[in-house]
């Protein structure tokens, strides 16, 4: 994170601000579909607005969470484990973003 403090600080706040309405949407929408069966859940997520908001929530959330976890690493880990954790943090973030985009794309366009 060396020399990236300012941009990380700004991105953390910017993503936080965008996540406020997205998180409220997520709480209301997803919790009301908690027990939905497969067909109903797919039909719900296939609607463009829901697909778009879900993708945004997870992607922006993943970016916010990567910054936050990097901060925890910087605060508490000073050993060689630090680089491993940081790499793992990137890997998990990218995996979540790629996986969710792929899944939402498939649900939206697979009919």
């Amino acid at each position: 994170m060396a020399h990236k403090g300012t941009s990380a600080f700004i991105m953390q706040r910017a993503t936080a601000a965008v996540l406020i309405p997205l998180a409220i949407w997520f709480l209301v929408a997803v919790v009301s579909h908690l027990g939905a069966d497969y067909e109903a859940a797919r039909a719900w997520l296939a609607r463009p607005l829901n697909a778009g908001l879900m993708a945004l929530f997870v992607i922006i959330g993943a970016w916010h969470m990567r910054i936050g976890f990097e901060e925890i690493i910087a605060d508490y880990i000073h050993s060689s484990v630090r680089k491993t954790l940081s790499a793992l943090n990137w890997l998990i973030t990218i995996s979540i973003i790629a996986g969710v985009l792929w899944a939402v794309y498939n649900i939206s366009f697979a009919g």
Partner: peptide, 19 residues
Amino acid sequence: GLVLYGGSMLIALWLYALA
């Protein structure tokens, strides 16, 4: 924040399963 980190992975799994 850490709980939400784990939760994000579970949500990704849920969406993967749905797809």
